[in-house]
Computed example of a mutant assay.
Amino acid sequence: MFSPGAGPAADPAGDRHERRIRSFQPRRSRVTPAQRQALLRLWRRWGIEVDGAAPLDLPRLFGGLPVVLEIGFGMGEATVEMAAADPGIGILAIDVHTPGQGNLLRLAEREGLTNVRVANGDAIILLREMLAPGSLEGVRVFFPDPWPKKRHHKRRIVQPEFVELAASRLREGGVLHCATDWEPYAEQMLDVLTTSRSFVNVAPSGGFAADRAAGRPVTRFERQGLAKGHVVRDLLFRRIG
């Protein structure tokens, strides 16, 4: 699709992809002309290949701003809204959906944002091999694939191993914010996070957070869920210890 170095790679980590169950499936659906032009024009400046080869220098990438990692951003509209609302926070947004990557770059440029970087690849490799312990202000996982069939539950990203990995990259007091419109997954998230000794629930009730907690904008996936009558659940857990 793109010449080397001109856009996101199809498999940035290559043989660093160890044998494990993944929570995502790469989607190389049709890229619009506007998205393609954004990728060609902006990828070298704002794009990051998650190849696992070397740690990221977050202070250099974001000019010293505290950084939030957003895992899975769809078409990027909510990411841009959050970045514009809080320019004092850098957003490192990771996904494997090429049209979404192009659209996020296009929107960020249109809004004149300088606090967004777009990562291409596996969030586990990014967390484990490219981000230093205690380097993140927050981690956001909004509307991840719910993998609704029971035999696929092992593919859900919010599992104990992921939660502890995320905790290790958060500073003390940093927040892991998850949201889903799939009630069984919401219950699993709450159970996994409540069980972790690395986090404490921000919600006074000890359950789900208030509706669209922490100013989270409505996402495209959220609108689709609401149209189907789904209930949206937010979970906010603060890193302790």
Rank of each mutant, 00 (worst) to 15 (best):
M75L: 10
A85W: 15
V118M: 08
R216H: 03
G121E: 14
V31A: 03
A186H: 02
L193K: 04
S205I: 06
E109I: 02
F162K: 06
W147R: 00
R45T: 13
R30G: 05
Q188I: 06
S198A: 15
G47P: 07
L92M: 04
N115D: 15
G72E: 14
L61P: 00
E18D: 05
R106F: 02
L235M: 12
Q188L: 13
W147A: 00
T32E: 07
V158C: 08
W182D: 03
G241N: 11
R216M: 07
R60L: 08
M75Q: 06
D95F: 05
A119C: 08
I94V: 14
M75H: 08
L65A: 15
A9R: 06
L176N: 01
A85T: 12
A227L: 03
E129P: 01
P99R: 00
Q25E: 05
K154T: 09
R169M: 09
F73R: 02
I125F: 05
V200C: 09
H230A: 13
A167P: 00
L226I: 10
G173Y: 09
K150P: 09
D57V: 08
P4M: 15
M189R: 04
G90H: 11
A179V: 07
I124D: 03
A13F: 03
L126S: 03
L193V: 06
D57I: 09
E111F: 07
P184H: 03
V175I: 15
G112E: 09
L107R: 14
F208Y: 14
